[in-house]
Simulated scan of single mutants.
Amino acid sequence: MNVKIVSDGPFGERAYETIKKKFECEYIILDTVKPASIDELAEIPKEQLEKINNSDIVITYILNPDLTLDLVEQIFGKVKYIIIGAWKGKGLKNQLESFENVVCPEIMCELEENGNPIHDEFVSKFGKPKLDIIVENDIVKKINVLRESPCGGTDFISKDLLGKNVKEIATLAGLRIQHYPCRAGRIRLFNEEESGRYKAATYHHDAFENAIKRLLVKK
């Protein structure tokens, strides 16, 4: 699978570092040409556009909403699936998701299967956290990350929770993901910062809770 991460600024580099461990991945910072007037859109260089078009999955962290929409309109019929990692406003979300191969998650660690084979292949590795744990005498000995948040936070907190008491890890996971630090609020421009962070904390807490439940069923 070929994944392109496209940004016009400070976000996307952590997703690139995480995703490239599992899929062929490239990080593209748009080298846009400034328009002649404020009424015109910045122009995306043809070389970069051609590179983006040659993708299975495109993930955008573009903060400029007009540029996001312009890019999607140019590539939606040429790439297999587009995930919008940064967007502003419900109106833009609805407009972007009117394209059948585009999704705008509230935060990237909520992604789950939706029936599209390309999207689901990606989400089998990255999205809503899922993991298994190995415990000896109530102490966590090993954590297998089955699906991790694209930012790398799941792997970060999993390493931190080794050696902890199994009864504590779900609560600790929810706290530690915010120390990564979680950027959910910063790139979810329409939302309160704490709302995005709260969701990320909840998803990681639940992932460890579910892992503990599966462990108890095995016993």
Rank of each mutant, 00 (worst) to 15 (best):
S7G: 08
D8V: 01
D8H: 02
P10T: 15
P10L: 12
F11C: 10
F11P: 02
G12Y: 08
E13P: 06
Y16C: 10
Y16G: 10
I19H: 08
I19W: 09
F23W: 11
I28G: 03
I28D: 05
I28T: 06
D31M: 02
V33D: 07
K34Y: 14
S37M: 12
D39V: 10
E40G: 01
E43D: 10
E43R: 04
K46R: 13
K51G: 05
D56E: 00
I57Q: 01
V58Y: 00
V58N: 05
I59Q: 04
I59H: 05
L63W: 06
L63R: 08
N64T: 11
D66C: 06
L67S: 01
T68C: 06
T68V: 04
Q74R: 13
K78L: 11
K78E: 13
I82S: 03
G85T: 08
W87K: 05
K90H: 15
K93G: 09
N94G: 13
Q95Y: 11
Q95T: 15
E97V: 01
F99V: 00
N101M: 04
V102K: 03
C104S: 11
M108W: 06
M108C: 06
C109H: 08
L111Q: 11
L111W: 03
N114I: 14
I118K: 04
H119W: 07
D120R: 03
E121F: 07
F122H: 05
F122M: 09
K125E: 12
